Amino acid sequence: MKIVYLDKDTKELAQRYDQLSDSQFAHGLRMIELLGIKPADCVLDIGCGTGKLTSYVSDITGPKGKVIGIDPLASRIEIAKKRAKANLFFEVGGSDDLYRFADHSFDCVYLNSVFHWIEKKEDTLREIKRILKKNGKLGLTTGDKDQKNPIRLIIENAIIKILGYKPQEEVFSPFSLSSQDIKRTIERSGLSITLFQINEDSFYSDSAEQILEFFLSSSFGNFLSQIPQEYKPQITEEIKKGLERLRTPKGIERKHSVVTVICKKP
């Protein structure tokens, strides 16, 4: 059974995520540019985390616009609320809570590094379609389940070395999809895909510990949660050794593919 535990998050993880999420912020900036958000637009950020990207978008919409960020993790909304402005609001809520918004409420809805955490994707997309205005846009960034980037391989090999097998559940997030399944899922919702691209990105971290902290904080405590506790220290050490092999003069390189999708409500 695939499970994501929201209660694994802590205030410390939320704060660390706010400090370490530059790569996800960068993906979001690219998506926001492609969405073409305008002054006076009404925008919803689903899974806003600590609100860095939401705050950036509120500067684009300006005082005549309105931006709402929702996230199911109260500790992250607590940090996000410190960024609140006259046109920027934050609420605890997730993809299952979109019923709170009226039909045709938003010019734009987006999910940045969130789609792979949503179990009921088609239900969520139908609700997004409902709350979008005519010709409104949806943007999302997510990973490709089938990508074999160096860090993913290091983590999978470390698990296999210590456990002797690979867990059936996805290592990073249980509801990840392949790029083709992402496309098919969106098309079934009735939204029209206007852009679908996959970018190969590289970011650099100072240490292996920092990378593991990013994975733990960005997964709100769920990283390696399917691993029996007694094996985690050994697996963690194996992962650190592997990560050090990726060190360059700039730091440890984190290569990965990012799927960016822009959709329009017909």
Rank of each mutant, 00 (worst) to 15 (best):
V4K: 03
D9G: 10
T10H: 03
L13T: 00
Q15G: 02
S21G: 02
S23W: 02
H27P: 00
R30E: 10
M31C: 02
M31N: 05
I32L: 04
E33K: 15
I46Q: 05
G49H: 06
T50R: 10
P63H: 05
V67Y: 05
I68K: 07
G69R: 09
G69C: 11
D71Y: 04
S75C: 13
S75H: 14
I77K: 02
E78F: 12
K81A: 13
S95V: 13
S95L: 02
S95W: 08
L98Q: 06
Y99H: 12
F101E: 05
K120R: 09
K121G: 07
D123T: 15
E127M: 03
E127C: 01
K137C: 07
D146Y: 02
K148V: 08
K148H: 13
L153A: 11
L153M: 15
Q168T: 15
S173E: 07
I182D: 04
T185R: 00
E187S: 11
G190A: 05
F196G: 03
S205T: 05
F220A: 13
G221T: 10
I227V: 13
P228F: 10
P228S: 10
E238M: 11
E244G: 04
L246G: 01
R247D: 01
T248Y: 06
P249L: 01
T260V: 13
C263K: 02
